[in-house]
Computed example of a mutant assay.
Amino acid sequence: MSLSEAALQALRMLWEGDATLWGIVFVSLRVCFFSLLLATPPAVALAFLLANFSFPGRRVLIVLVQTLLALPTVVVGLVMYFMLTRNGPLGEHELLFTQGGMILGQAVLAFPILAAMTLSAVQGADARVAETARTLGAGRVRVAWTQMLEVRFAVMAAVVTGFGRVISEVGCAMMVGGNIAGVTRNITTAIALETSKGEFAQGIALGIVLVVIALVTNAGMALLQGKGGLK
């Protein structure tokens, strides 16, 4: 099959609503949603803790978070594989080669991005916001909430970046999920599989979906930032 024929077949699959194709897309979106839901609260909390409090080991934690940003996804996948395997510390939960295992793995991938970007936003925010809140008698929780409102668009940008990280990675998803059809096969692992088999139509179709998802996500973020008064 030529490339042009594969592209036409890919468009036909998208237009006709191929069940297998959209099932793969649904798996990707579901895993990404729950991984971000799992990773965002502790990552944001850690960022505010590091930004507002001094304690022994703070600098080490910051360096660790920043180091994890560059960690290859396949290394995360390897670590999670050993954690989830039958003899691993989480083996009793039988999460290996399941969507639950993929969610954990991708939450680990998203965590440092969310924490590092939020930390940078809080540290770069106008210090007068927190000072004014303290002057008005706000406690630490209220001050943190005021800071959160101040940097909310930066936090949203961190979530969008984390979404892009997890939906486009293949190493961790392949190692932890196992690329099982109808269960853990997501967009990136399906593209890798179909391309290796020389079946390009589904890979092209899924690539188109991935690009559209990225465009829609970033366009939505830009729209929200515009409404927030950001240029």
Rank of each mutant, 00 (worst) to 15 (best):
L3K: 14
E5R: 15
A7Y: 08
R12I: 05
M13F: 09
W15Q: 10
W15F: 14
G17A: 15
G17V: 15
G17M: 12
A19S: 15
G23N: 11
L29T: 03
F34C: 13
S35L: 07
L36H: 01
L38V: 06
L38N: 06
A43S: 10
F48D: 00
N52E: 14
F55M: 10
V60I: 12
L61Y: 04
V65A: 04
V65Y: 04
L68N: 07
L69A: 05
L69Y: 08
V74W: 06
M80C: 12
T85H: 13
R86W: 13
R86P: 09
H93V: 14
L96V: 01
T98A: 01
Q99K: 06
G101M: 03
F111N: 02
L114P: 02
V122Q: 02
A127G: 13
R128D: 13
A130R: 00
E131W: 11
T132H: 09
G137R: 09
A138V: 00
R140D: 08
A144P: 03
Q147T: 04
M148R: 00
M148Q: 07
V151G: 00
R152S: 08
A154T: 02
A158C: 04
V159W: 01
V160N: 00
T161F: 02
G162F: 02
F163R: 03
G164P: 01
V166Y: 04
M174C: 07
M175W: 00
M175S: 07
G177T: 05
V183H: 10
T184Q: 03
T184L: 06
N186V: 15
N186M: 15
N186L: 14
N186C: 11
N186P: 10
L193N: 12
L193P: 05
E194T: 15
T195S: 15
K197M: 14
K197L: 15
K197Q: 12
E199V: 15
E199D: 13
A201E: 10
A205W: 04
L206Y: 09
I208G: 07
I213Q: 03
M221T: 04
A222F: 03
L223I: 11
L223P: 06
L224F: 07
